[in-house]
């Protein structure tokens, strides 16, 4: 690997292709342009942004490429940065603005540890109540859903909006439902004690003892890859304890069920998402599927006829 003196950005890409092996965008298309390596190498050759746009739009931001890169390049960060330079999608910008307006009238965050549920969990109020009750956490009135959308679509984040969101969160224990926001919070709140929803629920004995060896457990890819070095041990232990199969490949990278861009923000799955979900389940005959991200239930229900449950629904 290069010296650490080199910037950890696209010039450091040596073209090893390891990111391709774990990239759902590449797997769905088998075209190197649709991979972090392809984007980095094209940038090294001076490719114009317009040439890169289809790949930038197709990336799921699952973050699988980050922990496998031997050069420690922040590949998903590179893609998020480039997305900011693309023409905006009006309907997605409107979504961001809608969430932002909803956050504007909220009360300040209560004291103590907090749950930042995110849009997917908030979309299922009964499930949200259950998660809150299980974790015994108070819910942050402003969970940064608009910031999560902005990160996803390359939208603008106003400094004052960011300050308002982060005000009072520094140093707190937070359980964060949105994997992409969690990834970013690790740099925004370096002193924060941050956990993803899956990890927090998976640590509860009431949940853990109900996970069966016949279950197929779908780790939420974004939260997992954002803290891979630590979480790979967490899920290794969970797998040993419960005996269940997981969506981890031979490199212990989480295969997400989606393979096309803006998962969760689009209406309905694309063909690539269905193919990717089928690949996840190929050769497996689980009794149930357990997901950490509630937004993944609908997609998986389309490709397999067994119960698909959120972890919190086990309790």
């Amino acid at each position: 690997m290069y010296s650490d003196a080199h910037p950890r950005d696209f010039p450091a890409c040596s073209g090893c292709s390891l990111c391709r092996l774990v990239c759902p965008m590449w797997r769905a298309r088998r075209d190197p342009r649709f991979s972090p390596e392809g984007i980095a190498k094209a940038r090294q050759s001076g490719a114009a942004l317009a040439e890169l746009a289809p790949a930038l739009e197709a990336c799921t931001l699952c973050g699988a490429c980050d922990p496998v890169c031997p050069e420690n390049i922040d590949l998903s960060g590179m893609i998020m940065d480039l997305r900011r330079e693309l023409p905006p999608h009006p309907e997605l910008v409107a979504l961001q603005i809608g969430y932002q307006q909803a956050a504007e009238g909220t009360e300040p965050a209560p004291a103590g540890a907090l749950l930042l549920p995110g849009a997917a969990l908030r979309a299922d109020p009964a499930l949200l109540d259950k998660v809150q009750s299980l974790l015994g956490l108070r819910r942050a009135p402003d969970d940064g859903a608009d910031l999560a959308v902005a990160l996803e679509i390359g939208g603008e984040i106003a400094p004052q909006r960011l300050r308002r969101f982060l005000d009072g969160l520094e140093g707190r224990s937070l359980v964060v439902g949105d994997g992409l926001l969690l990834r970013q919070l690790r740099s925004w709140l370096p002193a924060g004690r941050l956990q993803g929803l899956g990890e927090a629920l998976g640590n509860l004995s009431t949940i853990r003892r109900r996970i069966a060896s016949a279950d197929f457990y779908v780790v939420e890819a974004r939260a997992f890859h954002a803290d891979h070095e630590r979480l790979v041990a967490h899920y290794d232990t969970l797998r040993k304890d419960c005996g269940c199969a997981m969506n981890l490949d031979l490199q212990r990278i989480a295969m997400p069920p989606h393979a096309s861009g803006y998962p969760g923000l689009r209406m309905g799955p694309a063909r690539e998402d269905l193919e990717q979900s089928r690949w996840l389940l190929q050769g497996r005959t689980p009794a149930r599927i357990l997901v950490e991200n509630p937004a993944e239930r609908a997609l998986l229900r389309r490709v397999i006829d067994v119960p698909v449950l959120h972890l919190a629904e086990l309790a």
Partner: peptide, 22 residues
């Protein structure tokens, strides 16, 4: 065939990194 820089630039070199051409 794809002919743009985004397509050809990926193949500028191999793992050896001492031979370069598009």
């Amino acid at each position: 065939l794809a002919e743009g820089t985004a397509a050809t630039g990926i193949y500028a070199t191999d793992a050896g990194g001492t031979a370069y051409s598009l």
